[in-house]
């Protein structure tokens, strides 16, 4: 995928924060014999808090390719220049989305002209200014958007995703 060359340094992120536990928990719960003690599992996956970029790395309407919650889950950070749903930063205009189409998993392209993410596979498109709402398409969910946090140094952290990511049955593997 063309996004890969722009991926932020993997070493800067903490991968699989709670994933090992969640996955193992699920597996154990299934496989243990009847008399064994059930393993407790969390109700939700534990998302890592990963630094994706610094505010100074972002230029208006120029996509910065990232990955979250791990390197196999490509995404994008955008500074849209106007306050939008899910937006963070002083202007409430910084958003992050998965760039894997939730229909069949093709990589989405950013159209800076109308600030949409578009799928060359089957023409689905998602509006970055409307919380990733599918403008038109085949996906049965809107585009997974990141829960973002900006610290006082201007570092942007992703700390969650609001829909299931394509190609995984747990957002954290």
């Amino acid at each position: 995928m063309s996004h890969c060359d722009k991926m932020v340094d993997a070493g800067r992120r903490r991968f699989l924060g709670g994933a090992g536990f969640a996955a193992a928990g699920a597996a154990v719960a299934t496989m243990v014999p009847v008399q064994a003690k059930a393993a407790p599992g969390a109700a939700r996956v534990d998302y890592p808090s990963n630094r994706l970029a610094n505010i100074s790395d972002l230029k208006p309407n120029e996509p910065v390719t990232v990955a979250y919650p791990d390197t196999d889950a490509p995404g994008v950070l955008l500074k849209l220049g106007k306050r939008v749903p899910g937006g963070v930063g002083a202007d409430g205009d910084i958003v992050g989305f998965s760039t894997t189409c939730p229909h069949k998993g093709f990589p989405l392209n950013y159209n800076a002209g109308d600030k949409t993410l578009n799928c060359p596979g089957h023409y689905s498109r998602f509006d970055c200014e409307s919380g990733g709402q599918q403008v038109w398409g085949h996906a049965t969910q809107n585009l997974p958007q990141y829960a973002l946090r900006v610290d006082d140094k201007g570092d942007i952290y992703a700390e969650g995703v609001d829909e299931l990511l394509y190609g995984r049955l747990s957002n954290v593997l």
Binding site: A23, Q141, L164, Y166, G167, L169
Partner: peptide, 22 residues
């Protein structure tokens, strides 16, 4: 352990059979 005979601890590629949406 699953119907797809696939290692689901890994990210699946485009057009995979081993994924379903909510």
């Amino acid at each position: 352990q699953n119907k797809f005979g696939t290692d689901l601890s890994k990210q699946q590629g485009a057009e995979t059979e081993a994924w379903y949406s909510p």
